[in-house]
Every structure is written in C-alpha cells, then in structure tokens.
Design a protein around this nucleic acid. Structure first.
Lengths: 207, 207, 207, 207
DNA sequence: CATGAATGAGAGTTCATTCAT
DNA sequence: AATGAATGAACTCTCATTCAT
C-alpha cells in the first residue's frame, strides 16, 4: 500500500536505510532483516535489488564517497586561488560529514578493517578525494602560496581530525563536565573547520 | 593439580588472542569459538573467566588503553620541557600504535560506533590519554612555549593522523603506483612522527 | 497483439527448457526462475500457462513418456515377428534414451521417489510402455518364439540396464583407468542394445 | 533428558534419521530441520557433528554402500564355486535392498544426478561392489562355469532390475488390477532374486 | 580448572507464488 | 499475452551461551 510498486523509490529507500544503519552499527552489526524493517519493505526485496548484503554495503559506501567527491569538486570550481580552494576543501568536507554523519563512521570502519569488506572497487572513491587535495597543494606550491609538504599527511590531518570530531560528538558531550580541559562539546563544525584551516595555513606558509 | 599458575596463563592467552582478532575483524566479526581456537583452549573456559563476549572485549580495550597511557606517562617523565613532552607524546603514541596495530583499529571501531559496545567504563582510558596531552599543552602555554590552542583539536590531529596512517598502510601500498601523488607508502612511523611534530610546532609557536 | 501464435510458441519454449533442466537437476534442483531465464521469458508467464511448478513438471514427464511410447509403437509396426519386435523395442528405447538423456534421469528420479511428485496422472505413460513389451512377449510366447516369462521382470531388465548405462556414462569414463574390469566406457548405445538383445534371446528361447 | 550427552548415540541417531528421509525424499527434498525433528535433537547438533548438509548426505550414502559391500563379501566367503557366489551376490543384494529400502533410491538418485552431489569420495563404494561381481564372473569364466560376458552389463542387469523392483513396489500395487499383464505385485524379493538368478544362468552358460 | 555436548535464537539467502500494470 | 515488483515462508548455517561431567 505505502510504497507501492515504484522500483526506484524502493531501491532508494533501501539504500538510505542501509546507509543509516551501517553507519551506526557497522557492517556486521546490521542484519538484512533490520534494514528491511527500517525501510518498511519485504526482506526479499533487498535481494531483488542487490546481489547480497555485501553488495548493498558496497553500493552505499560508493554512493557516499561519490557524493562528497562531487560536492567538493563543485565547490572548488568556484574558487580563485589555492588558498581559497584549500579552505573550500576543508569546509565542504566538514559540512558534508556533518550532514551525512554516516560518512566518517563508514570511512573509519572501512579503513580500520583494512578494506576487508570492499575490495578493488571503492578505492576509486577514496583516491579521487585525495586527488583533489593533492592538486590543490601542488598548485599552491607551484604558485608560491604553500611550502612543500607531504600531501597524504595533510590529507590525514584534515580528514582524521574532522572524522574524529564528528564521531566523538556524543562522547564529548557525555564527558564535558567531568573534565577540566575543553572538549569543545558545543563547537559547531563550521567553527572547527575554520580553526583547522587557520592552523593549517600556518603549517603551509611557515618560514 | 598445580592450580593457580595455569589460571593466569590461560586468562592472559585468551586476552591476547582476543586482542589480536578483535583488532583485525572487529567485535561482530569475531566469534567466541574463533577466539577459543586461536587461544588453543576450550570455548567454555572463556565463559569461566569472562562474563560474556562483551566483557572480554571491554577487558581487551581497557588493557590496551591502559598500556599506552602508562607508556606515554613514563616517557613523559623523562622530559625537561613542554616541547620535549609533546615530541615524546607523539613519538610514543606512534610507536605504540605501530607495535600494537590493534590499537588504532579498535579505537576507530569503538569511536565510530559511538561507543555502542563498551558503555560507561572504558572512556576513562581515552580520557586519561587526552589528559596527558592537555596538561602538556596547558603547561607549554603557561610557560610561553606554545600559543593558546583548543587542546582537543590538537589531540585529534595527532591521533587521527597517526591512526589513519597505520590503518591505511596496506591500502597505500596497494595503490602506490597507480597514483601520481606521493602516498608515503614506504615511510616508517618514526619519519611520520617526526614530520607531524615538526609541523605541529609551527602551529603552536607561530605568532 | 497478434495473439495465438506466440502463445503456443512460448508454452513450448517453457516445456523444453523445463525438460532440460529438470532432467539435469531434478525437481527440487530447479527453480522456476531458472526455467524462466533459460526460456528467456518472464517468470510470471510460467504461472500463466501452468498452474504451478508441479503441474509443469507433470506436463514435461508426460510428454516425454508419450513421445517414447509413440516412437516405439511406430517402429514396432514395421516389424514382421515378435523377435524383430523385441529387438526394435530395445533398440528404440535405447536410442531414444540416448537422444533424450533426460528420460532415464527423470524416470529414475520419479520412480525412486515412489511417485511422490506426480500422482495419479503420469502412470498412464509408464503403463503404456510396459504394455507394448507385454504384448510382444505374450505374442512371442503364443507363436512359439519365446518361453513363458514374467514380463515385468524382463521389462525391468531392459529398462533398468539401459537406464543405468546412460546415467552412468560420465561416471564410467571417470573411473575407466583406475579399474581392472572393463566398464565399457567407450561402448556406444547401439552396441549395448545389440548385446542386451542377444543375451535376452538366450533367456527367452532357452530349452 | 531423552538423548542425554552421548556423543556417538546422537550422531548415530542423526545418521539414521537422515538415511531414512533422504531415501524417501531425495537430497533436496529433505530439510536439515526435518532431520533434526525426526531425530529428536537440536538442529544445531547436526552442524556440530557434520560440516554441512552435503557432508551428512555423503556420510549416509557411504555408510550404506559400505554396509552392503561388506555383507556381500561375507556371504560370498561361504560359497564353494562361482555359481554359488553369483547366486549369493544376487540374493544378498536383493535382500539387503529390501531391508534397506533406502539403498536403491539413494543409488538411483545419486547416479541419475551424474554424481553431482557426492564427488570423488563415494565412488569407492560403488566400485567395490562392482569389483566383487567382476571377480565372480571372471573366476567362473576361467573355471569353465560361465561364458565370457561384459561384466558391467551383467552388473547393471542385476542391480537395475532389483532396484526397479524395489522402488516400484508401491506403484505396482497401485496398478495391479487396472492391468492385463502380471506386474508381480505380490512377489516377494526372494522369488524375484531366484528368478533373476535362474534366467541369468541361461545367459552365462548357453553355448 | 577443564571439556564436549547441547540449545535457541537469529543470520543471510532462496523460492514458489501473486499482484498491479 | 506479458512484465517487473512484491510477499511470506522456508532453508542452510552460525553464534553466544549453558549444562553435565
């Protein structure tokens, strides 16, 4: 009654339920039945649209990586110089990660398993994202904006920091009071992005 | 016969097997039977020593966090000033993470699940580690070595970068050639630690 | 549009695909989807033409039994005396079984399940085939060609031997060398049919 | 309560339930749950004792073939000459097949699937049985009792006939009256064995 | 302390069958 | 006459956990 017989709609529903749940509980922590119930569809439909659980997972992760990569690219096109591009990269990644809290979790889960689940196919997504930053840094270097750096380290600094920031949000709020140091529990992502950008500039321009 | 001694030995064996497997495959990716086989003991013994699988997991993670925290503390005690302490923090964390490749995986897995698995009890470990860095930064600031920063962000920068570096080791080697940018596939952890420290100093000192 | 013609064609396609697959994999070993794909039609069409899977199976088996029975009858009509008729029966059954390797498999599968699958309706086919041999033997007896025998036993000898011969073809070739006795792995069906006929004559004529 | 914790007993129970059900309904026609219920044990125990359904099936078939082969061998040892041995072979096979109505069904099912289910491992059983007959025939030939024949054909005659006789028992009784020819619906297996032996002798001795 | 046997719940997956268009 | 979407039941297999010895 509800969903009817709309192929794309059903498939999309499945993907979003899966994205949601995989992000929260990881691959092994989510059952196909769980996804089906969340998507309000019959469990067998998942196998109608996807070969198996692993394929569904792969689809989800790929979509997420694809989306962010496109978003970053679009935003980057509006920039005038490497500095702006770097800023845009950080801001866009951060805001996307916040809007899709799935992403950091999935990325970390994926990476922390050594890519056990999704071989051969989704690296493309990760590589493309890194490529974008790589170009920005190299350009900036060539044009005299930045000093020479090891791009992958900068990449890990940005992504690692933001990811941890997002994934620990709940935790940080849980501990805020029992702690002397500032855990930034009420900072919003924009603030953090700005902060990271500012600090990073110092690295990239220093001496 | 000859009780007691074997007891601790068995328990230790279990913990190390569990640590190993949990790190590689995550909580849900490891079965109790799997651990028993790896530890070469009877499955029921795990339930003799640990209430259940979750408790065993908790024990493992806590031990790991405890170990690193103690190591960092010990190393820190040998230092003369905040700069040296910061250097020591980064180096120690990096080398510990490399020697226990379990740690980053477990930390990420744990955090990325929003602490779903080990509630209430293991945060202590994470907090202690952060506390160490917090003190270093605050001291450095008070003594004029560092400018004022948001400690948790610096913490995430260090930990996030190193963790990603370690967990992506295999992946980076897999892609090294098909890529234009340097993915640092043959850098060792020390090199990276030194690099991170150097770059961080710029942040913390720059006017 | 242009109904009617396609109708029969589709139905026929289904039957042949089903025959092929049922023979190779047995009733439970074949899915309706499998048949649909093989026949290159939509799965639901099978339910348009046949009440359900069991009915389709029944149709297939009946057709096969009907075909062979008609073939035997036709060939028999060309014969002059019971001896020739017996020879024709054996040769025809053997060559039909070889051309339709489905038949023996299906017969055996059907019989070995105690007729669980097709109740009440397909025995007719089996009975008709046996009737043909029965008449030959009775005639031969009356006309002094053969001694009196129990027809059903002779029937089982012929059918059982040929069926085993055909169904074990692959197996016999697999073991040919590791075996001292001759497993007749390169005999063709005609040779065997002739041999069976010759040996059977001895039984039917002896003293 | 009932079965208790007796390993061998449980395993045996499983095997016999499986033998029974597989014979009646074939491999695909029996569910693991079905077997568990019939054996009055927990479904998971089947996987405790057997790798999977296929392995259980294999075990069952192998046991059956082993049993009959040993029985035939034992009986054969009591005989004085090839003629007696042949008689013994036929009688023993027939009576075993009757007492274990599973055997013919399983053999046929197995063969008719081209050995799809049990590769590489159970042929041994089939080969051993054939070897026994092979020796009898060769000996008989050497000692002047029998003429030269193709052993595998004789083997198929015996086994094929008896198998069909047993598997069609129900069917033959269902049709007895609606039929002119004698379908031997009330013959017992001994009668048939004797008959087959008698007829076979004619083949093997006739000049 | 230690073991093998046992359990019940649930996981992923497939299937025959039906519905809506 | 034909199609793709949908369903619910069943199936194989695994797992965390407990019992009996």
């Amino acid at each position: 009654m509800s969903a009817g017989r709309d192929s794309t709609k059903t498939k999309t529903t499945i993907i979003y339920s899966a994205m949601n749940l995989f992000a929260k509980n990881g691959y092994d922590g989510v059952s196909v039945e769980h996804i089906a119930k969340d998507a309000n569809i019959n469990k067998a439909m998942i196998y109608y649209y996807f070969k198996n659980k692993a394929t569904l997972y792969e689809t989800v992760v790929k979509k997420l990586l694809d989306d962010i990569q496109k978003t970053i690219k679009n935003e980057s096109a509006k920039c005038q110089n490497p500095k702006e591009e770097l800023k845009s990269f950080i801001y866009t990644f951060a805001s996307f990660a916040q809007k899709n809290p799935h992403l950091p979790s999935l990325m970390l889960a994926e990476l922390s398993s050594g890519g056990k689940n999704l071989p051969e196919d989704m690296f493309a997504g990760l590589k493309k994202i890194f490529s974008l930053l790589n170009k920005i840094l190299k350009n900036g270097e060539k044009e005299g904006y930045f000093v020479e750096v090891i791009p992958i380290v900068i990449h890990f600094m940005i992504v690692g920091t933001i990811n941890l920031f997002i994934t620990t949000k709940d935790l940080r709020q849980r501990v805020q009071n029992e702690f002397d140091g500032d855990v930034c529990d009420d900072c919003d992502v924009d603030t953090i992005a700005r902060y990271i950008y500012k600090k990073l500039l110092k690295m990239l321009q220093g001496e």
